[in-house]
């Protein structure tokens, strides 16, 4: 299973390394979202700093939708899905590999967006480790749930419009937990119950990773 995961994840990341879709299109899209938020909220520094954690996570969520659509599109052409199945790969491995590839791209996106938030909005980090941990846990959860919904919508007509509609409400807890955790790790934010939010995020991760490992086989077979 782990070997298959490495193979599939490596394949997706190599495709990304050659096509540069995530870096050249999705990351700039996220930055545009941040800039648009700044336009919407006005040029004053204080509301921007106040809203920075939420804006960051909203931008990450939108980018997740694009990253997942890209991850599905990679398999859509040339009957690649059938190819993966014919190659005898473990479905759980395929799931973990694809999720890991999406997660890795999300981490890069988060780094770009975090730099944007810190530079453009002038937010200051107080607890860098909490910030990093939140990003990592958020990326795992978004990648796992996104990959599941990507597989669900893979064979569906109209999936471009359906996927955000299905995925975004499901990942609402990641937005809530991520925002709260960022608020407590940035300067000026109220230090509230960070531990319980982190636990919530980890539960979300565990649930969707486990669900994917168990369900990905029946979900993709004979779709």
């Amino acid at each position: 299973m782990w070997r298959d995961a490495l193979l599939v994840g490596g394949k997706d990341l190599r495709i990304e390394a050659r096509s540069r879709v995530a870096l050249a299109q999705i990351a700039p899209f996220g930055m545009i979202v941040l800039v648009l938020f700044a336009f919407a909220l006005g040029p004053d520094q204080s509301p921007l700093v106040h809203a920075a954690p939420g804006l960051f996570w909203v931008a990450v969520l939108f980018s997740t939708v694009l990253a997942v659509q890209r991850s599905v599109a990679v398999e859509a052409g040339d009957a690649t899905r059938d190819g993966l199945r014919l190659a005898g790969l473990d479905p759980a491995g395929i799931f973990l590999g694809k999720a890991a590839a999406v997660g890795a791209q999300l981490l890069v996106l988060q780094a770009v967006l975090a730099a944007g938030v810190l530079l453009l909005f002038g937010a200051r980090v107080v607890h860098p480790w909490l910030l990093l941990g939140t990003c990592l846990a958020g990326a795992v959860g978004l990648a796992a749930s996104g990959t599941l919904y990507g597989a669900l919508s893979a064979g569906v007509r109209l999936r471009e419009t359906l996927l955000p509609f299905l995925l975004l409400p499901v990942v609402a807890p990641v937005l809530l937990a991520g925002t709260r955790l960022w608020q407590s790790s940035l300067a000026g934010g109220a230090p509230d119950a960070g531990a319980s939010w982190m636990r919530l995020l980890l539960v979300f991760d565990a649930v969707y990773v486990a669900l994917g490992v168990v369900v990905f086989g029946p979900l993709t077979e004979a779709a």
Partner: peptide, 24 residues
Amino acid sequence: RRSAFAALFAAVDVPIVHFSVLWW
């Protein structure tokens, strides 16, 4: 099959949404 999986994924999320919004 597709709908059943969608219902399953959404149903799993309901308690998490519940608690996250409760603390929110």
